[in-house]
Design a protein around this nucleic acid. Structure first.
Lengths: 346, 346
DNA sequence: ATCACCTTCCAAAGCGCTTTGGATGACTAA
DNA sequence: TTAGTCATCCAAAGCGCTTTGGAAGGTGAT
């Protein structure tokens, strides 16, 4: 059933039917009711492409997901982020189109999405500290919202981010307060902006307490379980091992826990761990007392917000570019406790 | 830049330019080269909506991801599956549109996608044993491919599935061969088809060896880490605890491991665990010797294949509905070993 | 009765593409 | 020369919708 058929059925012009369905005032209430009833009856939905062609809008937003052939890693947080964003889109009549793109091809894909008119706007995932995509999207005149920030970017742009620096600073301070001095940092790849900020928070806390950050206690990799496991094993086997770990992801923290337990130690007693917790739906760090002490921030909620900020920009192009900084509270779990040497000293 | 402008620039008709770009033979090679060069120069890409309107196809396929408000669970395998599917789509010029939909709303969304003409086909995720969506899609005349199967469905449909039954049968047999008799099954929700098949494989192995499947050693839940942890703790605290676990997901298996180690036992020595491993990119069970003995099947590869089967159907509507059964080899890791009592008996 | 002014509706153009049904001219065969 | 064939190109219709620019009819004031 299309507009033509529906208006023939009603004995009305396409104009009137279209206006009735789109809430224009030039239609009497009586006919509007008649039209909507008939549309309902025949399960009429305007064809997306035709509508888009006529209005010049696609009613769709794009998510370009970087995948690298090197390690075929799909960021485990995408599921939750996209799920949150999807809620917002659904509530506003937008579709979400996903492109999986190899790192090098990103620019080409952005240009194509613009030229083909596939989407009205974009979410930019996984920003590096220096992020050429931002300039490109600005130049293409495509509305966008970044999940994260790009430290080196000087111009204004819309973003949603967690306050990574303050979260990691507070978490590190807690470890110091518990008597830990040798605190390792298992970070994500440090060309990623979030990782850079977390490291900054970690180092700020150490330096504020007169502790020198040690390069040998700092690692920066793709955040897999095996990374956490291998790194913790290696560090804990040293002569002067760390007594605590700051970890950038639950997945890697699980690897750290595996290493700790393999080596016959106990988490929260022999070794302390604080992780960042994205509050993933399939990896809850919950219960009355969480397993891991963690800086927690729901990435699903971030998705909801980013989508909303983007839709706002699309609806009102002239306005100031919206941003949102989310705080990540430090929740106390069972993976932290006083440092061994501190106990001995008391 | 649009067709009109491009053909004006070239001094050709829109017809000729369109034909040149789409590879029709009614154009001389010389003009074709001229046209493609100009298109390249101006970065011309045909508008998706206009093209779709003219051809009646959207060049997009839909993925409807079920989300339930009850537990807000996003299946952790979606990221990898979609990543695989996305590769296939990209290689064939298709877009992927995602809808996050609450369970109850699925039928409505399918009807809408059809009526609005948003997609040319669909991937059906998470089939239950009895799956009304299959009948609906058939009725809507939308090509689709199911990731998984639906046991109760009698008609033909296209699917890609892992041989869950034979995989879990073989895995259970291994545990029996190792001397285990009390083998627990931590399954997914058993209205899900895959879970039903895994249970069938597990029970077939037990019964073939004269072991009665015990209801108290069988659990069926959403496959979270906490589910694995809580269930293993509870079962291992009993008077007559299981000596081995068959687990339906790595995430839950990680929870089982946590419980085992918390209770002062060692995986592979005191308790054996075999899990299904979807070979997720962020949760590799790899290395020379994998952590978990597992039935392994790449869900990313399944995504690639499902997408291809769907595109084949769209391209050749008349053909037989393609299906594909993937075997999941049993890979030996460090989480399995001979049963304690068996050792004692020897 | 006349005019102005709403209210309610409609015909037709246009969005950017594909595709049908020729038109044109060059070349070949008789 | 004439007709037939081919290669190459084009004008215009159509995909399903929105939106512009009226038209028709009803109402109230004069």
């Amino acid at each position: 059933m299309n507009l033509k058929e529906l208006s023939a059925f009603l004995g009305l012009s396409q104009t009137t039917v279209s206006r009735a369905l789109n809430g224009y005032p030039e239609v009497s209430e009586a006919t509007r009711r008649r039209v909507t009833a008939a549309a309902e009856l025949h399960n009429y939905r305007p064809n997306t492409r035709a509508k888009g062609l006529a209005t010049g809008r696609s009613m769709a937003v794009g998510h370009v997901i970087p995948t690298s052939t090197r390690h075929e890693m799909v960021n485990p947080i995408f599921g939750d982020f996209i799920s949150g964003a999807g809620e917002t889109y659904a509530a506003n009549g937008y579709d979400m189109v996903l492109s999986m793109v190899e790192d090098g091809d990103q620019a080409r894909v952005y240009r194509e999405l613009k030229a083909k008119g596939t989407v009205d706007g974009l979410i930019l995932h996984g920003p590096a500290t220096s992020e050429p995509r931002i300039g490109l999207l600005r130049e293409l005149n495509l509305p966008f919202c970044v999940h994260g920030r790009a430290s080196d970017e000087t111009g204004a742009y819309s973003w949603v981010d967690v306050n990574n620096k303050s979260a990691f600073r507070r978490a590190t301070e807690l470890l110091i307060d518990l008597g830990h001095r040798r605190i390792a940092l298992l970070n994500g790849l440090e060309n990623m902006d979030f990782a850079k900020r977390r490291r900054a928070g970690y180092e700020a806390a150490l330096e504020a307490r007169g502790i020198a950050p040690l390069p040998e206690l700092r690692r920066s990799e793709e955040m897999t379980e095996e990374y956490g496991h291998a790194t913790a094993r290696e560090m804990l086997s040293r002569d002067n091992p760390p007594t605590a770990f700051m970890v950038s992801s639950m997945i890697s923290a699980i690897g750290v826990r595996r290493a700790v337990e393999e080596m016959g130690m106990t988490l929260g007693a022999d070794v302390s761990v604080i992780t960042h917790d994205d509050d993933l739906s399939y990896l809850r760090n919950g219960g009355e007392v969480p397993v891991f002490t963690a800086t927690r921030s729901s990435v699903r909620e971030a998705g909801r917000i980013a989508a909303q900020l983007l839709l706002d920009q699309i609806a009102q192009p002239g306005n100031e570019l919206p941003t949102r900084l989310l705080e990540a509270p430090l929740v106390l779990g069972r993976s932290t406790g006083p440092a061994r040497q501190a106990q001995a000293a008391q």
